[in-house]
Nucleic acid binder design. Structure first.
Lengths: 188, 188
DNA sequence: GTCTATAGCTTGATAGAC
DNA sequence: GTCTATCAAGCTATAGAC
């Protein structure tokens, strides 16, 4: 008999799935309970702050994943273009080829000053900063680097929206393959 | 004393606002009632199908707006680049400079086979088709035209996500100003 | 750590007066 | 066409046994 019915990682996997599919309001405790196989009270034992705690934990782990898996290749040795291609490959698996949508999108609706919204904003902000840093190191001017990073993240988000709505994963794939070019372009 | 407390247009304006801000699940009847100034029962008098009817009406009108105001300039006489610039101007006002997010995003969460989701998909599908048609007429190959249309709509959606999350409207503005170039590029 | 049971509120929707 | 009043079902959250 295991100490826990579902281990931490698997639990967070399933929570992530519910939140990104249904959004914060749409992710009811009934759905969460069903998907995780844990009863309401068990969920509250693990996340005393309730649904909000769950969403924050999910965001937290996604951020760590992004930093550790997706952005890590950007800091390794090698030609900038190669490193970005490596990142594109990691992004492809992170978003399951476009079939998984982004938590930064699904959790960014609702009241403007909610706690979750602030976490989402911080997450995207870090993403932009880290990406811009690498682009700058590849020789792009500071202002252009930040814009390229913003544009790349915009395009990632947009192709994921199109993928979700149209079930067409072409734009996402195309965007990834063009990332090295668009990110490292010298002139805007 | 007016026959109706709120006229059709204004009512749909406010409904649009609630749905795009909070998403479908987040747009509770309490919020809707508060924002529109109508009680639940009055809303059900106007929309017998309830919340789903409201969302469909909102989507319907947004689609008409897109066709009539945003895409119309694409069919007028003039150089293709000029027509696209005109469209960009209309898009700018349609999305309030990036401050309004897109219903196709906010209403595309939740169960995969919901009625609303199908309406959303149809809306985006029409948008892609109409945009691709004009790009094709401007001399871009059929396959490239469709890809450019998809990419443009992806980038619109993405910059709107970034705008919502970061409250940074730069990427949206930049994307609009680059639309003529990106849409009419001959090679992908 | 997980469960059953339940409190208390909010939800979407309806009935019927004016 | 709008309202007040109400319903059953859903929601988040908690208490307490094992």
């Amino acid at each position: 008999m295991p100490i826990t019915k579902v281990n931490e990682n698997e639990l967070l996997d399933r929570l992530t799935d519910v939140f990104r599919t249904y959004g914060y309001e749409g992710a009811s405790l009934s759905k969460i309970s069903e998907v995780t196989g844990l009863q309401r009270a068990s969920l509250y034992h693990r996340f005393p702050g309730g649904k909000e705690d769950m969403a924050k934990a999910v965001l937290e782990r996604a951020g760590q994943w992004l930093t550790g898996q997706v952005l890590a290749p950007l800091s390794e040795p090698g030609k900038p273009a190669d490193r970005i291609r490596h990142m594109a490959k990691e992004l492809h698996s992170f978003y399951a080829g476009g079939k998984h949508c982004c938590l930064l999108d699904s959790l960014s609706f609702g009241s403007d000053d909610s706690d979750i919204r602030q976490h989402v904003q911080q997450g995207m902000s870090e993403w932009v900063d880290k990406l811009a840093k690498v682009v700058r190191e590849a020789g792009v001017s500071s202002k252009n680097a930040r814009q390229h990073a913003q544009d790349a993240i915009s395009h990632i988000q947009g192709t994921l929206v199109v993928a979700r709505v149209m079930k067409d994963y072409g734009p996402f794939e195309r965007m990834l393959s063009e990332l090295p070019t668009t990110l490292l372009r010298k002139k805007s």
